[in-house]
Every structure is written in structure tokens, then in C-alpha cells.
Amino acid sequence: MEATEIIELNNEKRTRLTEHNLKYYEDMLLYIRLNGNKSEQQTEEVLLEMLEHLLQAQQEGKTAEEVFGSDPKAYCKEVIKEIPKEEQKNQISLIIMIVLQFLGIFIGVTGILGTALYFFFGIGNSLTTFSIGSGIAILVIDLILLGVFIFSILKWIKRGAFSKKETKKWVEFFQVWIICTVFIGLIMLIQRFMPAFGKEVSIPTFYLAILGALLYLSSYLMRKNQTT
């Protein structure tokens, strides 16, 4: 079974826990799941086993404390220690996939919008001029921002799940909206205020659209290869 299938199964079975056991179990789930460099497959498999165990114990009238002890954090650490690392191959290909996709969208949208604006409305220029040095610097900073963005979304998920019952839907939406706005805002600010350095080059804007499409396509192909 694939990790995603196991996660679905876990979501479904978890609803059968009593309120007390659910709270205990979900704390463990988050603590164990949010260890980035551990094998996803092994993580999900052991989490499902623990859930099944707890469900059976619950039927016999036992509590989560009786099964996993009174110090779940220490117990989770013990479990995490024994989960094998995610294969480096998987880790690296995930990062490359995200980077390619981001660059593809970023460069592609710039190219398509620029070309469309020029041809249909006569705005701007058919050539895009940029400095190589600052262009690369902007891309690198954007990628770092993307990393921080993904990390904060993960953090947000972790916090949100801990206080699931109290947080209202619109508050959650507002929080995500703020994180996204800050992310996009920073990207635009950097583009605006980065001083130009390095050799200046001009290329037809529609080249960017093609480059973006190629980058996006390669990330798409990578993902397709991975799942089959």
C-alpha cells in the first residue's frame, strides 16, 4: 500500500477513537509525522499500526496511557529514532521537483503575460531586459523564500490541528491568506528593489514563456515517473 492510501485509511479509522484517546493519538501523529527527513512509507505504516492497536485496546476498555505510557513525547522520540531516513534519492528529487515547478510557473507567467500585454495592448516591449547577476540573485532569494513559505505552512498545519475544535474556518482562511500575501509581497519587493548588477541581456519575452513551459513540463514528467 502507498503512503497516501495509508493516510486515507488512518483518517477514516481515527474517527472511531474516543475523544480522550483521539487527542492523545493526534498529538503523537503530528509529532511523528512532522519529521521531514524520515521515510514517509515507514512513518505512515507504524502510525497506522499504533492506531489499530489503540482501537483494539479501546474496545477492551483501556486508555491510550495504558498502551503507550504516560509520557507520549518520550515514547514518540523513541519511535522516531527507529524510523529509517527517507532515501536521499527521494528527498533530492522532491526538492528538484518543487524548484522546477516554481521556476516554471514564475518564468512562464512572466513570459506569457509580457507577450500578451505587448501584442494585444501594446504595453511594454517585445524584449525583456534583465541583468544576469541580479536576475540569478533574485531567483535564489525567491527559492529561499519558497522554502520558508513551505515551512511556515507546515508549522501552521501543526498548530491548526492541535486546536482544531476552537479555530473557526474563516480564521484559518485569514491566517493562510496572510502567510500567502507576505510571501507574494516579499517576492515583488525584492524584484523591485534589487539593484541591477552583472551583464545586461535582452531576449524576446516569448522565449521566457517557452522556457517556463519546458521547466514545468520537466517537473510534471518527474512526478509522473515517480508515481509509476
Partner: peptide, 30 residues
């Protein structure tokens, strides 16, 4: 499977062992 194992351990009299403690061991053995 996991639950079955912990039941068997207890049936053999190792009731001192907390049920959850088999999972880190199973991971290590894998």
C-alpha cells in the same frame, strides 16, 4: 501483526512490558 504480538507476549507472562514498546523494536528489527 503488532497487536497480536503484544497479546502473545503478555500471555507468555511478560505483562510488565508496556504494549506500545514493541513498535520501536519492530521498526529496529525491520
Amino acid at each position: 501483526y503488532g497487536y497480536e504480538l503484544s497479546v502473545k507476549l503478555q500471555q507468555f507472562g511478560l505483562s510488565d512490558v508496556s504494549e506500545g514498546s514493541i513498535y520501536p523494536i519492530l521498526l529496529r528489527l525491520q
